[in-house]
Amino acid sequence: MRIKALVIRILRQIVRDKRTMGLLIFAPILVLTMLHLVFNGDDYIPQVGMVNIPESILEKMDLDDAEITMYKDERQANEDLSIQEIDGYLIFDNQTPSVFLEGSDPSVNGATLKWIQTSLKSLQTGVNSLQLDVNYLHGSSEMGQFDYFGPVLLGFFVFFFVFLIAGVSFLRERTTGTLERLLSSPLRKWEIVIGYVLGFGIFTMIQAAIIALYAIFVLGMLMEGLFLYVLLITLLLSLTALTLGILLSAFANNELQMIQFIPIVVVPQIFFSGLFNLATISEWLSWIGPFTPLYYAADALRDVMVRGYGWEEIYLDVCAMAGFSLLFIALNILALRKYRKV
């Protein structure tokens, strides 16, 4: 009954604060939409220069999907390269082709190089056996970067916003004296923590559902597995964010200090969440991954959304997140002893 009262109060507070509610739901939607537009935009069209290419070769090359500029000599091409008029140029020295790239943007380099390679391929006449038949275990040739990043970003935004808002609202209980007032009532310490978990849990459930539905059905994010699993994973992730936020609010004296936890606690988790290839992270840092909740959430979300896996593959991640939540809940109850010993 006391917990129910606390849950109702928290939900009422969230609903009254329209702006915060808007932030929790529309900010992730906005950012995901922008990322979708950025990552899934049209393919980049490389601007390629051709220096002194013999007519005979040029005729055989497939020159579609690029902007071609012809040069008489290398000097002119180099000048255009330095002012980024072209991304790279192709030059034939004694029948051997060589490529010069502008080189400052890796993704442009890749696109240019790829185009030059494909266009040169048509030179090798009659070698049809080179045409590879490509099959995909997961995803498809249509799968964009957004589909791969999407699940991680979905998890990250849920974590980020729940952490911040739960932390700040509990901090407010501390600074306005309402926490002390609660502890001068018969409310038990664990009831406070559980009340917060349930109150915010119900809200984040709705939040996660809206964001995930939007990402999948409006933005067309890849969704191979069961939607229910996505909800379960985001719910557990938001519980860890919530309990961690409440816990860290004990170490902040005001809202600004709460925000200072973002670069220390929230942002570093991105690096270990699989947004960047975990295999390439330097060894003396890679051990941190398993200590961050987002690591498990991202793995599980990707398993469900990209690979279409089910409970068998995600239950370990789910257990890990549940473990984090329980640990933080226990620490929270301990931290409240500062206010009341019984």
Binding site: K4, Q13, R16, T178, S185
Partner: peptide, 19 residues
Amino acid sequence: ALYGELSARENLQFFASLY
């Protein structure tokens, strides 16, 4: 120690339920 986002009645209801 009051919740500004809530009405007086809601504050009273909350604390009453705690007791």
